[in-house]
């Protein structure tokens, strides 16, 4: 009797055994499927030794398992006895037993004179010993200290490109951006990497003091987005006439915080809570780009003390620590 037949006949909810008589066709199908499993598994073994190609291995093992699954499913539906069984739901919750348990627990403290004091002290003992045992977790990392305020940048440090060569203003073209690092320092710290760009000085819409730290219109921003710390690795510089009006902007590819480079990294769109920090630049005697100090704001994703501190916005901070 097929499922559809049974549905038409109306399935009784009573425990009625619907015996499936010998179903030779289903048995044959299961035999073929199980044989397929054997073939697939053997092929997997052969390919594993002879030609361990990922696609072939996956195909053999996958098909073998799918065939096995189908075999079991067909057997479960067409070969073995089909049964409608019933089982009563247990209705838990016996008030008498609950009361007994309460009395047993309560009875454990019979005859004790200062019960509450003892229980309270035991609780305190448990809490202290637990707290003490967990304390070593504090060894997992250092205290925050000044770590989040320190970057490798200090006055006079040269900017170098990915190859380690010093950068000069003429290496930076308008409309593109260069990735730069502090010479001789780790590149993996969030405070290291920079986006260096150039804009004609007359386009800059920043305070006079800031223009001074953008020699020949070359400016450096932290490459790390102040939102979630991704590398700000895209630069939107309109070359298509209808979009000429849009100012050039550094855009973070993770959550699309957008920073107007002409306005000193001001946030114009997206979730970042702060503007992109500027690294004040100058030129040394060889006309190479150098840092005049640390970033004007703290870099990296925000934390509770990311603002303020000893740094004043227009005065190169010298590290904040």
């Amino acid at each position: 009797m097929s499922r559809a037949d049974r549905r038409r006949a109306g399935v009784s909810p009573d425990p009625v055994e619907v015996t499936v008589g010998p179903n030779r066709r289903a048995e044959n199908l299961v035999l073929v499927l199980l044989a397929g499993t054997v073939v697939g598994a053997l092929a997997f073994i052969v390919f594993y030794f002879a030609y361990p190609d990922t696609q072939l291995l996956g195909l053999c093992l996958g098909l073998a398992l799918v065939a096995m699954g189908l075999a079991f499913a067909v057997a479960g539906k067409r070969i073995v006895p089909q049964e409608k069984a019933t089982e009563d739901y247990q209705d838990y919750g016996d008030p008498e037993v609950q009361e007994e348990v309460v009395e047993l627990v309560d009875g454990g403290g019979a005859g004790v004179s200062r019960r509450r004091l003892l229980i309270g002290t035991a609780g305190a003992a448990g809490a202290t010993v637990g707290g003490a045992a967990l304390l070593p977790l504090a060894s997992m990392g250092p205290g925050v200290g000044d770590y989040l305020s320190v970057t490798p940048w200090k006055p006079g440090r040269r900017l170098v490109d990915s190859e380690g060569a010093p950068l000069k203003p003429e290496d930076v073209e308008v409309g593109t951006f260069r990735l730069a690092f502090p010479e001789g320092a780790s590149r993996s710290e969030l405070g290291s990497s920079l986006n260096v760009l150039k804009e004609p000085v007359e386009n800059l819409q920043v305070a006079e003091e800031l223009v001074k730290v953008m020699p020949e219109g070359v400016m450096a921003y932290s490459r790390i987005c102040p939102h979630a710390g991704c590398a700000v690795a895209t630069y939107r510089y309109p070359l298509y006439e209808p979009t000429f009006g849009e100012p050039p902007a550094l855009v973070c590819p993770c959550h699309y915080s957008t920073f107007d480079v002409r306005q000193g990294g001001k946030l114009t769109f997206g979730p970042a809570g702060r503007d992109l920090p500027i690294l004040p630049l100058g030129l040394n005697a060889e006309r190479e780009l150098i840092a005049l100090g640390d970033f004007l704001d703290r870099i990296g994703p925000s934390w509770s003390r990311v603002r303020g501190g000893p740094d004043s916005p227009l005065e190169p901070a010298g590290g904040g620590g």
Partner: peptide, 14 residues
Amino acid sequence: MGLVVGFLFLLGGL
């Protein structure tokens, strides 16, 4: 189970 595991290995392989 056979179907789930089998499909996962098919996906993993192909």
